[in-house]
């Protein structure tokens, strides 16, 4: 292998990882926002991601364009996530159920959604071909080939994440969300409609997941009902790596995981690709127990 091809391989892995990582970040914010407020790992999130991708798949297969399909499917997936919170999780919170019960509920929802999608009467368990994001082929930068799907994925995800950051940092709604994350009970006491804020958080997370599902589905050009389980876990790892509950942490975590796994696939073999997220996760948690951007809390005795 010549030096230049080695450099190209390295750069290619980095750029591919950045594009993928941005999309991971888009999923990770959903985990991060929900965890920040409810201290709950929402295992249904990966299923919502798959649901969104399938929604777009269904609409495009009926002759709709990719973008209109996405504009329709993303809010619908958001509504799905909102319904999960409204009908399954909120009642548990009202009863003061343990966090474990809530966790298992989200696992149940994820089973339900995934297996409904894979029922023969719905979409079937086989993989489906998804419309490509490759709008204008590929471009060459410093001798490295970049797919246009990668560019679209990176830019779209980054745009959405910027919009989300503005929402959380710059609006009254975001202020309410941050208040809930800081102290749920106090937020309720000062009159913030916490249940509505939680519902909206689920909605936003679900919509972002659906968009990420479309971006990643379009990148690989293939979707399957279980596509959300592994990527969901990776995105959650990304959220934790970055510091869960911190928005820019989720993005940074997504980039770290995306680049990490592309490098691992390039140099250590494709078997190492998927578990790389977890290796990074454990390594970073051991050094920084709250993740890269997480804040250390002091327990008051």
């Amino acid at each position: 292998m010549t030096l230049s091809s080695a450099v190209n391989g390295f750069l290619g892995a980095i750029l591919g990882g950045l594009a993928l990582g941005m999309a991971y970040g888009l999923i990770a914010v959903g985990y991060s926002l929900v965890f920040g407020i409810l201290r709950l790992v929402n295992f249904a999130h990966g299923a919502i991601y798959a649901l969104g991708a399938y929604g777009v798949f269904f609409l495009t297969s009926r002759g709709m364009g990719l973008l209109p399909a996405l504009i329709l499917a993303a809010p619908l997936s958001g509504l799905g996530a909102w319904a999960v919170e409204k009908w399954a999780l909120a009642p548990l919170r009202r009863r003061g159920a343990s966090g474990m019960a809530q966790l298992v509920t989200t696992v149940g929802v994820s089973f339900l959604v995934q297996n409904t999608l894979s029922a023969e009467a719905v979409f079937g368990s086989e993989k489906q071909v998804f419309p490509s994001l490759n709008a204008f082929g590929s471009v060459q930068v410093f001798g490295v080939t970049i797919q246009s799907s990668q560019i679209i994925m990176f830019l779209a995800a980054m745009g959405l994440l910027l919009a989300l950051t503005w929402l959380v940092q710059g609006t009254r709604l975001g202020l309410a969300m941050r208040a809930c994350a800081q102290n749920f009970r106090a937020a309720r006491l000062v009159g913030i409609p916490v249940e509505a804020v939680v519902g909206l958080t689920f909605f936003l997370g679900g919509a972002c997941a659906a968009i990420a599902g479309t971006l990643i589905g379009g990148y690989y050009q293939v979707i399957s009902p279980t596509m959300g389980s592994l990527i969901g876990l990776k995105a959650f790892s990304a959220a934790v790596v970055g510091g869960i509950g911190v928005l820019h942490g989720a993005v940074a975590g997504g980039l770290v995981v995306g680049v990490g796994e592309c490098l691992a696939a390039q140099y250590l073999g494709s078997n190492v690709r998927d578990p790389m997220a977890f290796v990074l996760l454990i390594a970073i948690l051991l050094v920084r127990p709250r993740g890269l951007f997480g804040r250390e809390g002091v327990e008051k005795v």
Binding site: A97, V107, G108
Partner: peptide
């Protein structure tokens, strides 16, 4: 999956 949800609910 539905049953898991209902039991917890």
């Amino acid at each position: 999956g539905l049953l898991l949800v209902l039991v917890m609910r």
